[in-house]
Design a protein around this nucleic acid. Sequence first.
DNA 1: TTGAAAGCGCTAACAG
DNA 2: CTGTTAGCGCTTTCAA
Lengths: 345, 345
Amino acid sequence: MKLTSTPRLADIAKRAGVSIAAVSIALHKAESTRVSAERRKKIISIAEEMGYSANELARALAERRTRLIGLAVPLRDPIFFNQFIAQALSGIQKTMMRRGYNLLIFSPSGKPGRATRDQILESKFTDGIIFINTRSCTVADVEETIDELQRANIKFSMINSYYGNSPINYAGADDAGIGEAAARYLAERGHKQIAFLSGQRTLPAHQQMVKGLKRGLKAHDLNLSAEHIGCSGYEETKAFEILDRWFDKRKDRVTAIFAADDQLLINLYDYIEQRGLSMPKDVAVLGRGNSGFGEHLRPRPTMFTIPTFSMGELAADLLIDSIENPKAEPRRVFLPYEFVNGVTA
Amino acid sequence: MKLTSTPRLADIAKRAGVSIAAVSIALHKAESTRVSAERRKKIISIAEEMGYSANELARALAERRTRLIGLAVPLRDPIFFNQFIAQALSGIQKTMMRRGYNLLIFSPSGKPGRATRDQILESKFTDGIIFINTRSCTVADVEETIDELQRANIKFSMINSYYGNSPINYAGADDAGIGEAAARYLAERGHKQIAFLSGQRTLPAHQQMVKGLKRGLKAHDLNLSAEHIGCSGYEETKAFEILDRWFDKRKDRVTAIFAADDQLLINLYDYIEQRGLSMPKDVAVLGRGNSGFGEHLRPRPTMFTIPTFSMGELAADLLIDSIENPKAEPRRVFLPYEFVNGVTA
DNA sequence: TTGAAAGCGCTAACAG
DNA sequence: CTGTTAGCGCTTTCAA
C-alpha cells in the first residue's frame, strides 16, 4: 500500500467504493448530475473526514490552466514601495478576488531595463501576465516586450503607457487628454507663459502630454515654445536649473507650470519654497499624478489625477477575459482622468 | 501528428532522434554525465531553435515542488499600502531572488479576521507559506492558524509577533527588549512619571513591551502603574482621551511617553501639536516603529526601530531552509532592534 | 551512456 | 448514471 502524506482522489475512491472519476466530479463539479445526490454526499463526507484537499498542480496540468496571473514590472528597486504600483496592484487584486485568480509576483531577475526575459519563462506557471511599464521603459523596450510575449504565445495585458500600434489589452490614462485639459485650464485663467516641467522626452507619456498641451493652447491662440518644455531626467538639480532659467527671465517670465508627475511636482514645490515664491500668486502650479497623491501635500495642489486603481482593475479584467474567452478581441482602454481642485492654480 | 502550440520534450526528442529522458537531462541537469557532451550540445541547439521552454507545471508535478512560496496576510484592507508589509515583502523578495523562488500572493478570501482557511487550500500550489500576522490577529487566531497549518502538513514561517510555545519558524522583533531599553533610556534621563501609549492589551507585542518596560523601570526602582498604560484601540479620539487624562493631572504629571507603534506615535504628535506642547521640553517622546518610519516626521522622533526588511529576508530563509532540508529544525529568531536618535527624548 | 516505461494526481473522453 | 482509460508534460527509476 502506497502512503502519500496527503490523501488523493484514489484514496477517497477506494474508501467510498467508487471510481476516481466519480470522486473528482462529486468534489469539483457541483452542477454535474453525473453522480447521484446521495453518492455525492457520501463522497464529500468521506473527503472531509480524510482531510482531502486537491493537488492543484495535477489539476492545473490536466486542465491546462492555473488561475494564476503573473506580474511583470521592469523596475530596479523594490516594487512594493512604489505608490503607483501599490495602487495598481490593489486594483488587480480586487479583480482577481472577484474572478478567482491569484497573483504570482516574479522575483526580479537582476537584469536592468527589461527584466522580462526570465519572467516570460517563469510565466509558464501562469495563465497570463500583467505588464506594468514604468518610466524606465523606452518605447523600444515596450515594443520588444510585446513582440516577445506574442511570439511566446503568452496572454498579457499592459498598464500605463502605450501608444503604439499593436492591438493588445491595455489600460492606461489619457495623457494627451490631460495635457489638453491642463492647457485649457491655465489659458482660461489668463496665463500666456505656460511651461511644462517633465522628466524625459523619450517617454511616451511625455510626448502625449506635449501633444495635448499644444492642442489645448492652440485653441487659445497660444503655443508651447521649445524653451518652455523642460526635462529634468528626474534629477532634482537638473529640475532646479530649468526652473532657474524660467524664473530668471525679466520679460515674458513663466506664470504657470504644469508638472508631468508626482516626483516633478515635489521638485517644483521644493524649488518654490526655497525661492520664497508663493502659489498661485507668483506662479500657478498644475500637476498630473496618481490619484491620492497630493492629499498630504500643502498647499493642496490642483491636479489631474490618474485612476491607477481602476487601471489595475481593468487590466486584470481584460486579461482574464482573453484567457477565458480566447476569441475575445484585445481592447485598449484609456481611462478618464480626474480633476482635483486645489489651491495652486 | 499531435500539434501543441508549444513544443514538448517529446518533440525535441523526435527531432534529435534521442529519447525523451535524454532531452530532459540534457536541458535541465547540467552536471549529469548521463548524456554525452556532443549529444547535449545537439539537443540544446535543437531546443533553442524550436523555442522550447519547459512546462513548469508538469515539472513541478513530477518533482513535487514548485519553487513558489505563498503569502498569507490576515488584513482587511489592501495590503500593498501598508508600509510594514511593503518592507517585509521587499525583504522576502530579496531572499527569494537569491534562492530562486517566486512569490504567490493569495487574493484575500473576503473573510474577516483569519483569512487563512482558503489560503491554506490554495497553498497546494506552493512549497510553503509565509504568514505575516498583523494587529488584527489575536493570540488565539495565531495559535489556531499554526495548528491548521501543521495539521495540513504545510511548511510555513511566521513574521511579526509570536510568543507562544510551538516550535515554528519565526522571525520577529524583541519587543520585551525594546520595552526594557525604552524604560532604561527614559529613567536614565531622570523621568519618573513614564507612560505607555499602546493600542490593544490583547496583542502579544503589547504584553511583551509591558513586561520589558516593567523590568527596565524596576532596575531604576520605578514602576509602571496601571493608569500609565493607555490603550487607544487604535482610535484617535480614544488616544486623545487617554492623553488628556495624563496631562490634566496637577501633580505627578506624566513627563515621558513611550508610543507602541507608528500610528500611536502619529496620534501623539498630533495631540502634542494641538495642545501646544513641545518635545522634549514639556514631554519626552520615545517611539517604537518600523525602520524608515519617522524619517519624514518633524521633529525627528527618538525611536527604537524594528528591522522589518530583515525580518522578511530571514523568514523567507527559514522557510526555504525547511523546505529544502526537511530535517531542519524550526528556528525562532528575535532580531535586534535599532536605536534612532531623534530630538524628542 | 542510453531508451523504455512507470509514475506525479487529476480531468475528460469513451464505453457501458 | 457509472467505471475504465487515455492523456497532461515532465522526472526518474530500471534494464539494457
